[in-house]
């Protein structure tokens, strides 16, 4: 399989704090790549680098072979139209209903008629089990439903890739299972690429084709689920076992 994206020797800092230093990561096309790492390690920053919401301080980011670090805002807007983004807290617009939230990218970027938009929005919401909440506002839904509505908005334009930021954080095991299943099904439906940032190892083992572990600004391990689980790297093992003892400082 080819590459969907590549972070090449990327460094990022927030003020004096170095978040990434000379990080290189390949994202395989058509696969689900999960990024794991400690809180504050810069996992979400990787997602923002991939859709151009954040520019690296140095290094290059390629998506589908095109270097996006040099793109102008207009080109980035075009690029973002091909990449869905499901935010950690869903980031649905509170003043819009769920249906209006999901319809927004279609209304703004396509010339589809109202009936066509309604049909597509209903189908997309149905694919995440939410067709019945079309006219409700985000504040009227449970955490799991809001997450799924966020997924629906991210995939309604049939993007070539979807980026998920902590999709299961803070949810009960049943909803976590439902969301993990939804991510897998959406990837199959779109036949595209998915990048998932998560701490939830159970869920990652269920969906990941590849796992990358981020530690101290670099990728310290990369491989399939089995390769990562059998990794001899003590950092990876300490993280997977949730142990206090090991090279990761507490």
């Amino acid at each position: 399989m080819g590459l969907w994206a590549r972070l090449d020797d990327v460094s990022v800092r927030y003020g004096p704090k170095i978040v990434m230093q000379n990080l290189t990561l390949d994202v395989v096309e058509g696969a689900i790549t999960c990024i794991i790492g400690l809180s504050g390690a810069g996992k979400s920053t990787i997602l923002r680098l991939l859709n151009g919401l954040k520019k690296p301080d140095s290094g290059r980011v390629f998506v589908k072979g095109r270097e996006i670090t040099k793109m102008r805002e207009r080109e980035l807007i075009e690029l973002r139209g091909t990449i869905g983004f499901a935010f950690q807290f869903s980031a649905l617009f509170d003043s819009l209903t769920i249906g209006e939230n999901v319809a927004l990218p279609l209304r703004e970027h396509t010339k589809m008629r109202d009936e066509e938009i309604l049909k597509l929005v209903t189908e997309t919401l149905d694919s995440v089990g939410l067709a019945h909440v079309l006219d409700r506002f985000p504040s009227e839904l449970s955490g799991g439903m809001v997450k799924r509505a966020g997924f629906a908005r991210a995939v309604v334009t049939n993007p070539q890739a979807v980026l998920y930021d902590e999709p299961t954080t803070g949810l009960d095991p049943i909803i976590t299972h439902v969301l993990t299943d939804t991510i897998v099904k959406l990837r199959e439906r779109l036949n595209g690429t998915a990048v998932v940032v998560s701490h939830d190892l159970e869920s990652i083992y269920m969906m990941a084709d590849y796992i990358a572990m981020l530690f101290e600004g670099a990728i310290v391990a990369y491989g399939t689920v089995d390769e990562i689980r059998r990794s001899p790297n003590p950092i990876v093992q300490q993280f997977l076992q949730g142990s206090e003892v090991g090279p990761i400082p507490i």
């Binding site: 919401l53 807007i77 139209g81 807290f89």
Partner: peptide
Amino acid sequence: SMVVTEQIEALLSLGLS
């Protein structure tokens, strides 16, 4: 509030200004 709840980033990620 839209900034802190990532709604502004959501607009940008949808290719909207």
